[in-house]
Write a protein that binds this DNA or RNA. Structure first.
Lengths: 152, 152
DNA sequence: CCTGCTTCATTGAACCTTCAACCAACCTAG
DNA sequence: CTAGGTTGGTTGAAGGTTCAATGAAGCAGG
């Protein structure tokens, strides 16, 4: 299959623990703000954000799920809740009878306005304020390369 | 309160999307392997790993929860399942009547042996093989600094 | 045009996490 | 020594995610 993968040495382990620490704790930290300001979790917030910025204001469910880093099943459950709450609408895609398109409602846009400023502020506090421009560039590059591997 | 937090510019947004993409997708990716090889999720795996390496083979529930990046309540539920499955034991702390100590059983150690090699291999494939030593050092430093902010 | 494969999406059940309530043990000021 | 506060841990219920099953719509070959 593959060569013996050597165990992580002390320095690698320290890096990994910090890395996985960020991965595990960041979502919960972000959700405290989103829940408080707009009663949303991070996935729901992503759904609203991507719909807001979408070409034509709509996205197919499966494209939206990919953008939000979640499964289509997860999105389907979440979309039902968001639709029941009047934050989004769904309707059949005219071009492809299998697809469903989602669109933000005015109420959804309002909800986003409640969430976004605090969210951006928090993201800055936690990440961007800690890195200078050069470090930020590096960090982005690392993340893109690792993400590419995860998606492969 | 605080100054106007400027919106993320295009480059910052690209960095953030890659970063949050890793944060959201990595746990699921790791859990596919852990579930397949040892029928564990990542949190359960962490519990076993930290108990394995603990001084004296035991840890207090609350210390273990912190190390595993989870809440005490979450650990309490997980520990009950792991204990029912015979992978860990719990017993009263002799020094402090409020505390509970957890310890790995032989079955737990065996389970860990099933999970660990594939886990380490996957972590290497996804992260460390993508970064050269200098980049890895940087990455670890960034993660530590961001984690410090999250924990503050 | 019909058969089988693939894609898109939804659903219910099982499972896991969170949240709030609760309890016991410890600590400390008066 | 004891009343009130804090720390450590567990629990049940509510809510969210995953997994597998289902079904409709499109597509491609015979």
């Amino acid at each position: 299959m593959s060569d013996e993968a050597p165990w992580l040495d002390e320095s690698e382990m320290a890096t990994w623990l910090a890395f996985i620490g960020v991965v595990m704790r960041l979502p919960g930290t972000l959700e405290v703000q989103l829940r408080r300001d707009a009663d949303l979790n991070h996935f729901e917030y992503s759904v609203l954000v991507f719909l807001e910025h979408a070409e034509g204001g709509t996205l197919r469910m499966s494209d939206l799920a990919f953008l939000c880093n979640g499964s289509l099943s997860r999105l389907s459950h979440v979309a039902r809740r968001l639709e029941n709450d009047g934050l989004i609408e769904r309707f059949a895609c005219p071009d492809d009878g299998r697809s469903t398109l989602a669109r933000l409602t005015d109420a959804g846009r309002e909800r986003l306005v409640k969430a976004a400023p605090g969210h951006v502020r928090l993201v800055r506090e936690l990440v961007f304020d800690e890195l200078d421009p050069d470090e930020m560039r590096q960090m982005g590059e690392f993340a893109k390369r690792i993400l590419a591997r995860i998606q492969a």
